[in-house]
């Protein structure tokens, strides 16, 4: 479904150049859920932004659904690929009602029948009709993220790119959103790429994952390998130790993988 080969992304030029992603290659099969894990600045979100066309400045090869992608994307691309962002407090327009937010993609893609589609999209994410005429500030964080997911799903895409979809939410709400995303993938045979810094979230959501550090992949794992705590690269092992909680003696052994 998605093939990425030798993806390289830099920002800036000359002395200020930042080489954010170096030689990233990955293949994601249809109906698979693939996780990208890493600490801040490791380039995981940058990969996602290049995939969905938000960043045009890359070299390498991106093939999505059999089609070679150029930095510029056609409108039909967005019917296939949609993205859900990290912060539902920032990704919804504060002066638009939920109804307006959901009607816009339908209008852009001239799908028609907006009324039915909006109702359907809302009920798919577990919100009832009453939410249509609310503004984002009248919703809780979890409800906002559901609206953001509904906005992505209203075009019936095949691929969903998820950039830390639950890191701005409380754990109780996170559980609801993760359950929702897992159910939707099953129902609609969606393909996910999920970016997260939380190994537990990735273990809960993904079949396979890549661990990134400083723009390159240090290790690719299956969910099973992550569960049985058998990663081989020391960086991944350190991440695993860190995600187990506070342990004074383990911390002194931490190495900087800069």
């Amino acid at each position: 479904m998605i093939a990425i080969e030798d993806l390289d992304i830099s920002f800036g030029s000359g002395r200020n150049a930042v080489h954010a992603v170096r030689g990233f290659s990955a293949h994601v099969a249809a109906n698979e859920s693939f996780g990208l894990v890493g600490e801040s600045g490791s380039g995981k979100s940058t990969v996602l932004r290049a995939l969905c066309g938000l960043n045009a400045n890359w070299t390498g090869r991106i093939v999505i659904s059999g089609q070679n992608q150029t930095p510029r994307r056609e409108r039909s691309f967005y019917k296939l690929v949609q993205m859900v962002f990290q912060d539902p407090y920032g990704s919804l327009h504060p002066r638009r009602t939920v109804n307006n937010i959901l009607a816009e993609p339908v209008a852009i893609h001239r799908l028609g029948d907006a009324d039915r589609r909006i109702d359907q999209a809302l009920s798919d994410v577990g919100l009832n009709r009453q939410f249509r005429f609310r503004y984002p500030h009248q919703l809780s964080g979890g409800q906002r993220q559901r609206v953001a997911i509904a906005r992505a799903l209203i075009l019936e895409p095949k691929i969903l790119l998820l950039d830390e979809p639950t890191s701005a939410l409380d754990v109780s709400v996170q559980a609801e959103v993760l359950n929702l995303l897992r159910r939707l993938r099953k129902q609609r045979n969606l393909t996910y790429i999920l970016v997260s810094h939380d190994l537990a979230v990735v273990s809960n959501m993904c079949d396979r994952l890549a661990v990134m550090n400083h723009g390159s992949i240090v290790e690719k794992l299956t969910a099973g390998q992550l569960k049985s705590a058998s990663p081989t690269h020391p960086y991944t092992q350190q991440l695993l130790v860190a995600s187990k909680g506070y342990d004074r003696t383990a911390i002194d052994k931490f190495v900087d993988y800069a």
Binding site: E176, N179, R182, S203, A223, K227
Partner: peptide, 20 residues
Amino acid sequence: RGLLQCLPKIEAGAIDLPVL
């Protein structure tokens, strides 16, 4: 207990999480 249970865990894998 509800808060503790709704945390995803690495060892648990892809299971439905209990909701609070």
